[in-house]
Simulated assay, not measured.
Amino acid sequence: MKKLIFTLSLFFTLHVGYSQSMFQKYFVDSTDNAIDVSNFLNAGFGFLPVPMVITEPAVGFGGGLAGVYFHGQKKKEVTTDSTKSFDNNKDLPPILTAAAAMYTSNGTWVTMLAHQGSYHNDRFRYTGAIGYMSINLKYYGGQGLEAGEYSFNMKGFLTFQEFLFRINKNVPFFMGLNYLYFNNNVTFDDQTAETEPLQAETNLGGMNVVTMWDNRNNTFTPTKGIMSVTEFGIFDQALGGDNDYMNFSHRTYFYQPIIKEKLFSGFRLNYEAKWGDYVPFYELPFVTLRGIPALRYQDHNALVGETEWRWQVFKRWSAVGFVGVGYTAPKIQDFNFNQSRVAGGLGFRYLVASDYGLHAGIDVAKGPEIWAWYLTIGSNWFR
């Protein structure tokens, strides 16, 4: 018995010591002894399990789990300051694959497999995703319905595929195509036992021509550079959809350091328009700002401007402030800039992967109607 106890004790001690050693190796930065997942991401084995916290007001509080695999090698660091800037080389953006599942308090659930990466010294970029989902949202009226809150569910299979090509290897300008297909079953439920829910299948199938300029110094948490993307295309029965309409969208993100290693600014401008014989209500552009639920303010045209500022407070920790304004209109000439939707808030960031310049943190925002909080990994302006 003594030998057994001694053997078990020795095994436990060695196991704890080994676990601590492995944790130190993969999750602690030897330069400052802070928590950092860079070494694990660079190790090149297995998927990194990433717990997800969902805080989008439109679907309620929830969570999930993603397995993320980082392909390739770490970036080439070109500065030694706390911004962790990286050369715009073949490793930008990184190649990653993710599988995810999530569930929220209002019954929304999503399962998805996605891949993103750049190839041949960043001459080609690819983003692809397939998923099956059931999403519960609210529609706030329009297209023949009076203003109000209408609960509905979207359920079906979705795939998105995008291929971009860099025309000149020395210029960060890309052109390409993307394709979206959604086999969508929509159900409206008025919560009345005497009536059956209204159900309909409305498939989406659309293709866009894409142009993109991207010289950001980092894809996760940029501190300098511009990303400007324009998409123009068509949704059509020939592409797998049920409705024919046109799509145009433009988004520009501009990042500029103000005080070296201390203060960083970001500016965002988004415009989206859809027009045609019939644009499905859930496809109408809407104001996308922290503090405003998805689909809350919709119309055929939506314009959003936002700025975000980050102050490097101490080592890996920084504070964030942001404010934005959004507008909607049935036609572009009908924008009324005296009727704005304003939202803003504060947050913090922690440099969680220094080799990748990846920051993560929490934002608290106030919109015209609600308070909301968001878990942010990387930039909030992800596309």
Rank of each mutant, 00 (worst) to 15 (best):
W381F: 14
K366W: 09
D334G: 10
F314H: 14
Y356D: 09
G361Y: 04
F335Q: 01
F314I: 12
D334E: 12
W317P: 06
S340W: 01
W371P: 08
G347I: 13
A329Y: 01
D363T: 09
I377Q: 06
G378F: 09
V323A: 15
G345R: 00
E369S: 14
Y356G: 05
I370S: 06
Y356W: 13
G324E: 01
S340T: 08
L375V: 15
D355W: 00
A329C: 05
F337P: 00
W371E: 05
D334S: 14
F335T: 00
K331Q: 14
A319V: 15
F337H: 00
V325E: 14
A319E: 06
G345L: 00
V364N: 05
R383K: 15
V352M: 05
A329K: 02
S379K: 04
A365F: 10
G361Q: 01
G357M: 03
L358T: 09
N338G: 15
L375W: 11
A353R: 01
H359P: 01
N338K: 15
D363E: 10
G367E: 11
F322C: 04
S354V: 10
D355F: 00
G367R: 11
A329N: 02
N338P: 07
G357K: 00
N336F: 08
T376N: 13
R349V: 12
W373Y: 15
I362K: 10
R349A: 03
Y374A: 03
L358N: 09
G326Y: 11
V320W: 08
Y350P: 02
I362D: 09
G357L: 05
W317Y: 15
D334F: 08
S379Y: 04
S379A: 12
S354Q: 13
V342Y: 04
S318P: 02
